[in-house]
Simulated assay, not measured.
Amino acid sequence: MGDKTYTLLDADRKPYQSSIPGTVGGHRGGRIYGCLDCPAALRAIAKGGYVKNRVFFADEATAVAAGFRPCGVCLPGKYAAWKRAREEIR
């Protein structure tokens, strides 16, 4: 194995270096997280966007703790649950 390091965000949205890549990707501006192979994220990247605001998390729990919401495209069930929970608060 090489000496590759990955920049991930912690639950306080602070970057740190890890020898293990993140398992969840996200968009800093929209505070959305999802799968690394999310079709919506890949389309945005292919069009030249998204990359500047892309962030990575070690896992889904860290993304949630950092205040990110699930992606409606690649995590539709989790997104629906998140949306329902927000509506109940109102």
Rank of each mutant, 00 (worst) to 15 (best):
Y16L: 08
Q17N: 13
S18W: 08
S18M: 04
S19Y: 08
S19G: 15
I20V: 14
I20N: 08
I20Q: 12
P21H: 05
T23W: 03
T23A: 09
V24Y: 02
V24Q: 04
G25V: 01
G25H: 04
G26W: 00
G26N: 07
G26V: 01
H27P: 07
H27G: 13
H27F: 10
R28G: 04
R28S: 15
R28L: 14
G29K: 15
G29W: 08
R31S: 05
R31P: 02
R31Q: 08
R31H: 12
R31W: 05
I32G: 01
I32Y: 02
Y33H: 12
Y33F: 11
C35W: 09
L36S: 01
D37R: 07
C38S: 07
P39N: 05
A40K: 09
L42N: 08
R43G: 09
R43N: 08
R43E: 08
A44Y: 00
A44K: 03
A46L: 08
K47E: 06
G48K: 02
G48R: 00
G48N: 01
G48V: 01
Y50F: 14
V51S: 08
V51A: 10
V51L: 10
K52P: 03
N53T: 12
R54E: 14
V55A: 02
V55H: 01
F56G: 03
F56D: 06
F57D: 05
F57N: 00
A58I: 09
A58V: 07
E60T: 06
A61G: 09
V64R: 09
V64K: 06
V64I: 13
A65W: 08
A65E: 12
A66Y: 10
F68P: 04
F68Q: 11
R69S: 15
P70S: 13
P70I: 11
C71M: 07
C71R: 04
C71L: 06
C71K: 04
G72V: 05
G72T: 08
V73L: 14
V73W: 06
V73H: 10
V73C: 07
C74S: 02
P76R: 12
P76G: 04
P76N: 14
G77S: 07
Y79L: 15
Y79G: 09
A80H: 10
A80V: 11
A81N: 11
W82K: 10
W82M: 10
K83A: 15
R84V: 15
R84Y: 13
R84H: 12
A85F: 08
A85L: 11
A85K: 15
R86L: 15
E87F: 13
E88N: 15
E88F: 07
E88Q: 14
I89T: 15
I89M: 15
I89Y: 11
